[in-house]
Nucleic acid binder design. Sequence first.
DNA 1: CATCAGGATCAGA
DNA 2: TCTGATCCTGATG
Length: 321
Amino acid sequence: MGSPDCTAHSPLYISHPHHTDIRIAQLDEVEDIKPPRSLLGLPELSWPGVYVPSYNRLAIEENPWVLRMTEAPAPAAPPSRIPEPNPGKPSQVHNPPSGMEGQVEERCLEQVQTMVVGEVLKDVDTACKLLNIASDPLDWSCVHVQKWLLWTEHLYRLPQVSTMFQELTGRDLCSMTEADFRQRSSQFGDMLYAHLDIWRSAAAMKERCPPEDSKSAADDDSWSDVMCNYPSQPIHLWQFLRELLLKPHDYSRCIRWLNKEKGIFKIEDSAYVARLWGIRKNRPAMNYDKLSRSIRQYYKKGIIRKPDVSRRLVYQFVNPV
DNA sequence: CATCAGGATCAGA
DNA sequence: TCTGATCCTGATG
């Protein structure tokens, strides 16, 4: 079976502006701009000059497409709304697009769409890895659905909606209409439906254009290694932490090596890491207090310890990679 | 106040 | 039985 009319899906990512607008508004609300107090004296953390509280940061970080989507023109928009190609030619704005201009714009649009789609695929993939679920919603068990819902709640800062969708497999979810979603959550059903739609589209897209062999072989550690190597076994906390540490590109803002050779790492954003761990383990109530207790259990087992010079939020793998 | 240390207990695999 | 989650008390900076 699979997802219906895949071809209609690629521009569909940007066809839910009303859903994402809410999101953007929420993100934009975050104007509390200040550097984290813990950054004193520490090396540059690649923050783009703006400090966003952890949850919003997650949303931005894990879903750049949420922001980028708004940059892409809506598919139904008239050609004249396409971002100005050259400020030096104001006439273009008013003149009806000639055939050639139309082509250029079309190509522009295509490029933007390709970029957006690429980002979507990447971010869906990142989320898959984090949640340890398949990218195709049709393959999800009830537990996977709950994980995904939890993640989506987290992403969109929704109140708890996952309870409204209990006992549903991914297939059940996919067979539901938008109205069904709204029936379960009048406020956020449409949002969840749209988000699921994105995932389904991404899955359909992947199916149609699977990652090229050239890509999947050597350079592509981000796709296969972490997630696929342990299908559904429970993951250990130390493995999870290491997994985050091995992805500095994605997670260095919340956890990073201080000395990789010695296995010393620092948790930069304890709440965020705990939240990720909670999502991964389907434990919504997870917090740093509990996570750190679990880390301390590793002291006895000789897996993790405090470094010789003990510092807050700094730990050390006894056996570095 | 956040973090840290560690005891006790419980649940799930 | 093992691992981790949860709750707790008390210490520390």
